[in-house]
Simulated scan of single mutants.
Amino acid sequence: MSDQPPIEIAGRPIGPGYRPFVICELSGNHNGDLGRALAMIDAAAATGCDAIKIQTYTADTITMDVDRPEFRIHGGLWDGRSLHELYQEAQTPYDWHPALFERARARGVILFSSPFDETAVDLLASLEAPAYKIASFEAIDLPLIAYAARHGKPLIISTGMANLAEIEAARDTALAAGAGGVILLHCVSSYPASFADANLRTIPDMAARFDCPIGLSDHTPGTAAAVAAVALGACVIEKHFTLARSDGGPDAAFSLEPMEFQALVSDARSAWESLGQAQYDLLGSERANAQFRRSIYVAADVKAGAVIAASDVRSIRPGLGLAPQHRDTVVGRVAARDLKRGEPMSWDMLKEI
């Protein structure tokens, strides 16, 4: 286990020695309805997640309304749509933010956001956001990272598409600018991501390379990859959330519904708890069953003074007799007294050689 100090977000410690920090990403699945966004916070809080995350941008702060091919998406879930059109639909309006933060506080759950420009950072700072999330596509925007980091809060940085040098630059920039710690999330920036591309073994490799907590921003279907990531050392799990996939929404296809997210939270915590530590001693919970291990028992009546034959003893359950490893030593010895079928074998039942 790493001896690195934990990073705290709103008083919640995050690191290898603590249960995974599970983030419920609302993204644009509010479908442009503030009432739905508030209902999503209620439903997300009820799953038992540790935090809820939103995204803070407008279509004009993240892109431009330009009719050029490079401003249009080709292939995948959003094929044919312009960036401006997509972000216009998915944006969480700035004037919603106070109500969303207030609802999260009322539900007792941490809320923070991904800022996509300096105006977004300023808004989130005014709302006392306890952390900032840098999205994968912005991981190379070092000025944005530095601007967010100057507020002294922890930064969570997704690393999808970033190479090792870019990841190191993002982390170093955040720390140099005063971030209250950095958490790196392994991420595959395809929507949805396939299991074949998940490459979860990157998580322990990142943990060995970077002196900070490592997690997973997961876009694969279901919960299997996220739970497996915990077993590989992920300290943070981020997963998209929706009230119902059938309601649609920009990210609905790769989002979890409330009952699914609740299962993710439970399974991630159980996976972490089950890791424990390497040990080979008898556990207290095993002690009552130790008596049912195999041992040597008398299998046929043997008269005192008779030589014990192989057929006179057996290695069976329960475990109150001599250990099975002594069977060859017992066979050929002389019975010190009458032995009755069903007795556990002990050394005092044998004559000294």
Rank of each mutant, 00 (worst) to 15 (best):
T92V: 05
G319I: 03
R209F: 14
T242Q: 10
M349H: 13
A306D: 13
I237K: 14
E238S: 10
L283P: 10
L34E: 14
A225H: 01
R287Y: 07
D141K: 00
A309N: 03
A335P: 14
I145V: 07
F195K: 09
M1N: 02
S311E: 14
F137E: 09
H74C: 12
A44N: 06
I7N: 02
G15S: 07
Q279L: 07
M161V: 13
A148G: 08
I54K: 12
A335D: 00
L275T: 14
C187G: 10
F210H: 02
G276M: 15
L200R: 09
I145G: 05
F21S: 04
A131G: 07
L185M: 04
R314L: 12
F195Y: 15
R317V: 12
S114T: 03
R36V: 08
L264D: 09
G80N: 10
T329V: 06
N289Y: 08
T220W: 13
L83V: 09
I110Y: 05
A104G: 04
E352Y: 04
G178D: 03
A225E: 03
V302G: 05
R12M: 13
D247Y: 03
D122Q: 06
L232P: 07
P318G: 04
I353Y: 09
R81K: 08
A263M: 14
D117Q: 10
G108F: 00
M349G: 05
L34G: 14
V188I: 15
P250Q: 15
R150T: 09
E168Y: 07
R105M: 07
I41C: 11
H30A: 15
A139G: 08
L264K: 02
G178C: 10
A198W: 08
T92W: 01
R341I: 13
I41E: 11
I54Q: 08
F112Y: 15
R245G: 12
H30I: 04
G319D: 01
V334D: 11
S274C: 13
F21V: 00
S136I: 06
S285W: 15
S274F: 02
W272Q: 05
H326T: 09
N29W: 07
Y132C: 06
L216W: 08
